[in-house]
Design a protein around this nucleic acid. Structure first.
Lengths: 203, 203
DNA sequence: CTATACTTTCAGTAGATACTGAAAGTTCCA
DNA sequence: TGGAACTTTCAGTATCTACTGAAAGTATAG
């Protein structure tokens, strides 16, 4: 097998049994983390979060250690500008936090550790940004087509009635989905687990 | 107020009371539908479905009438190629269907009418494409870092342990979420409403 | 106040994605 | 078999999004 490529092979570990094992472990750790980071990045992409942001978050989450901007730049091979903007966006979302280390001048970042909490935050934000506007639009559309606006005979035209019905179906759906979201978010940490348990028992 | 712009004002409705009302209703219907279509398109965009695909689907859903390729092109101002590809993709998803009209040569498309069913289809597909690979990756990563792979002392190094713990947290989350998805999908057509009711009662 | 260490911003660019339109393909009828 | 009606494909192009790198900004220490 070819030698694995390390960033400058300067300090090869002494070949004692203990050191060897420790070195291997570090290498393995790196590999596992990178694997996770890459996958998480891909997944974010499919959502609507861009790859880099998702990767930064994955990095902070998986290492479970506060990291500074340069750590992020180096590990993910991205520019300072990109790192800065993405970190800020993640802070805005609220799923990572700035923190200071005593005696350190630069800022560090760490991920929330509770996955359920992160999910709640994201779900709440998505509801606000996506569900709520749609719901409002549907209500507006229904109003435009109801009897009191159009008059009885016009409102009964076949195509008008059909559209009205479709709007009603969609509204019901969004309302119920919203309620479920609300439950998730309202019950934050413990909530999702409970949702799952309830569902499993009921079916 | 200025006259609203109609595509070629060829046939103005006769100015009887009945016709006037009918014309207004049609205009209003159009406006309401367009509003819905636009919003739905925006929302799709934030997901990962592109705007045009979402708009086509919205159009088919909201009119509740089978439409042919030219109808779609005209209504949404898009090219034939785009319409063709997007319609096919929607068919692949399974949320719209091809259909034939007696005596018509060209094909028509219609949206599923049951919103819950559409949601089930989409949820199932997203689970398969997004959750499942992540879960697999997490398991793989955990394996790389457990005692039987690394040996006792290496596995106990602080950073290795920390990462292992984070992986565990994420795995639990994905598992539970998957279960919930499963419920949604498994109970498909009739089910989602029931899921919602069960949840609402339980909380 | 000046130097140093660090962060943010943003114009420009690279890269990804969506869209068009015309040509090629298919189906069906006479 | 030819041709009309319709659909699909795809090379080329327009549009949008993400990223870089350097310049400007801010905070701290001496």
């Amino acid at each position: 097998m070819s030698t694995t490529s390390f960033p400058s092979m300067a300090i090869p570990p002494a070949p004692t049994a203990g050191n060897r094992a420790a070195g291997d472990a570090q290498k393995q750790l790196r590999t596992a983390q990178d694997l996770f980071i890459r996958r998480w990045g891909e997944m974010g992409q499919i959502w609507g979060i861009n790859r880099t942001m998702a990767e930064i978050h994955a990095f902070l989450y998986i290492t479970a250690q506060p990291q500074c901007t340069d750590d992020v730049m180096e590990r993910l091979n991205i520019s300072r500008g990109n790192a800065s903007m993405s970190l800020r966006a993640l802070c805005d979302w609220g799923i990572i936090r700035r923190m200071h280390k005593r005696g350190e001048r630069r800022e560090f970042f760490e991920s929330l550790s509770d996955v359920w909490e992160m999910f709640s935050i994201i779900a709440a934000e998505r509801k606000r940004r996506e569900m709520d506007p749609v719901l409002e639009t549907i209500k507006q559309c229904r109003k435009m087509l109801d009897e009191s606006t159009l008059g009885k005979s016009a409102a009964r035209q076949e195509d008008v009635a059909a559209t009205r019905q479709r709007l009603a179906g969609m509204e019901e759906f969004v309302e119920v989905t919203n309620t479920i979201f609300q439950q998730f978010v309202g019950n934050a940490k413990s909530g999702l687990n409970r949702v799952a348990r309830v569902l499993l028992k009921a079916f």
